[in-house]
Design a binder for these strands. Structure first.
Lengths: 198, 198, 198, 198
DNA sequence: TGCTAATCGAGACGGTACGTCAAGTCTTAAG
DNA sequence: CTTAAGACTTGACGTACCGTCTCGATTAGCA
């Protein structure tokens, strides 16, 4: 009963080929960057015909999105019992991801593509960003319920500030301090605020 | 004593041509976007030979950077006497800049190019971003001296959060609310903080 | 035993394209001449990408050489039984070839290219000139065996004189008489000589 | 009375510049050949602005024609009293001219340009070829009057054969024998003829 | 002696064509 | 029907020269 809907006649697609393509894509992404990475180079690196790639993906964006998706790690949402306990884990995890050639290229790519191509902003948002936001969101909600942060704090906006400043710093500021330290400073500022309360 | 460093020989460069090139660049940037904008199209739109462009700029990035630079407005730093008075002006100014096809394209471009090309991050930082940061910085310092915000608040970091979240929202979030409203919400969050004081 | 040296993989070259390129080349050669004939024009006339031409030929010379080669007629060596009978046929054949826009352009081209490019002199010599010389040579040898011309006459040199003077006249002398007449006068002079015998 | 038609006011043209241009032209002609010789290169080699060249010549052909003209030697017509005496001088002179890089380039150029550009065939004919033909012509006429050659020999045609075969050999035949030897063989053949007389 | 006008070098200008590269489509033979 | 290979059209790239056009700076001869 669980036959494939349309019984595929002829030679089936090779999964080795699938993997070779994704791997070649990731390799080249880390080596030469998104812009200077040609489909032809990917094909040749993967030992595959161009046609074989075009049969699977209709654009470089799609291909790369899939390649990045392929190495998504299933981020376990931490639950240590304290806000800073959870945050430390999230921050360390993020920092570790970012501090590699592929990690930086990936972020640069996501921002770059997304900013000039709204329809791929959507794709990346779902495949990459959303997961992380959900983890953060859960952690913040728990902190709320533990009364560690204001119960009327705008969690979504907090995440915007946290993520936004991180990306902003990664793009525009030469590396002055470790990613972890920067994120902790940010979180602290958000906790205390800069006004005088009433 | 006459400071003529190098008497320029040969026919001098035409400023009409300079302007035509920059204008064509801005037009096309708004119309078709950075990626699909060819030097050939710019040349033809400007009524100019390709050589004439290549004589001035060695890359599309350089050209576009200069074009954007050319429409830099000399942002007067507001001084209304109150923090929110100043902020309103800055926010309105920013919103007005952003809410135009060219404005959005420009921001997308800056982020996109900068994120995949560190050396142009530098250029844009200086030509475009720095000026706005300095205005914000001055306003925040004055607010500090008026005791409207904490005197030990990390101004640089505050600006990172403000700018970062704005860019982040512009890229990843479909337009749900006016830019002004979003920026005001952000500023409020920063003032109050999300923690419970000491 | 099957002599297929390298089994060709990939899409084979299209013979339609081959022909279109050669035809466009010959057309333009006759219309605008060798110098002002651009590869781009040939490509567009043939309805073909520039790359497709560059895949086959590395230079305009090569392309044109091949185009000319393509219209080589398989000159049948005449054998009428008499020297002048044979010569008449050869002369008429030559004259007919020369008296057309393409014919003149071809000769001009061959001489022009060959004189400034020794390696193409070689090509043209083999593809174009040699065949005609061989025909002439055979005819002259038969005339020798029939005792119509001296048995110690230097046939190669005779052909040089015949061909050389023809080309020379074509280049430098405005058309005063039909090609046939000129060639016959030349041949006569060669037969009689200008000296007084021994 | 014999004043220059239009008294030239303003700065007169510099003869140093004239010479520098011609010299640079000849140098480059011998070095890189006619085709790959750009006006820009000539100007730069001569230490002269492009305008200065275009003020004097309207085309590369004109310029080169003048450069070649500038080194015309005033071929004295020999008169030794015997046909072969005169011929030896002419042959030696020709051979000496031809056996140098510039000499070969010049001939190649003349033939090449002339064959693809009838209006320059005219120019070269007058400036270069005609002089040599007249010398030959005079020598042949004297030989006639001395009864060394037939009195009804077609002198013009003889010269065509002599010149034509020489050019032909220079272009198409790899150097097998000295120019002098070849010319002497040709002359001999012409004297004796290849037929059997009546 | 100073004026006038064409010259000079330099190099910018709008163009044309170059030869290269990659994009995405297509056509083979082999599996 | 997929695959690897590679030919195909298209279009932009960045370069080299073309012939024309400004520039400021020399020069001569005429006034």
């Amino acid at each position: 009963m669980n036959k494939q809907i349309n019984a595929p006649s002829g030679r089936p697609r090779s999964i080795h080929v699938d993997q070779a393509i994704l791997q070649a894509t990731l390799d080249l992404l880390a080596e030469v960057g998104y812009q200077s990475m040609s489909i032809e180079a990917i094909a040749s690196r993967a030992g595959v015909g161009k046609t074989t790639i075009y049969r699977r993906y209709t654009s470089k964006e799609e291909l790369v999105a899939d390649a990045i998706e392929s190495l998504r790690d299933d981020l376990a949402i931490p639950d240590t019992g304290s806000f800073w306990g959870d945050m430390d884990i999230i921050i360390n995890h993020a920092a570790q991801k970012i501090d590699s050639p592929l990690g930086r290229q990936t972020i640069a790519l996501i921002i770059s593509t997304a900013s000039s191509n709204p329809q791929f902003a959507e794709v990346y948002w779902t495949k990459y960003t959303k997961i992380r936001r959900e983890a953060l969101s859960k952690v913040l909600k728990r902190a709320k319920s533990r009364n560690e942060i204001h119960k009327d704090a705008d969690i979504d906006l907090v995440i915007d500030l946290l993520s936004g400043s991180l990306y902003y710093a990664l793009i525009f500021k030469p590396i002055t301090e470790p990613v972890e330290a920067y994120m902790r400073r940010t979180m602290n500022l958000l906790l205390k605020g800069i006004g005088h309360g009433e």
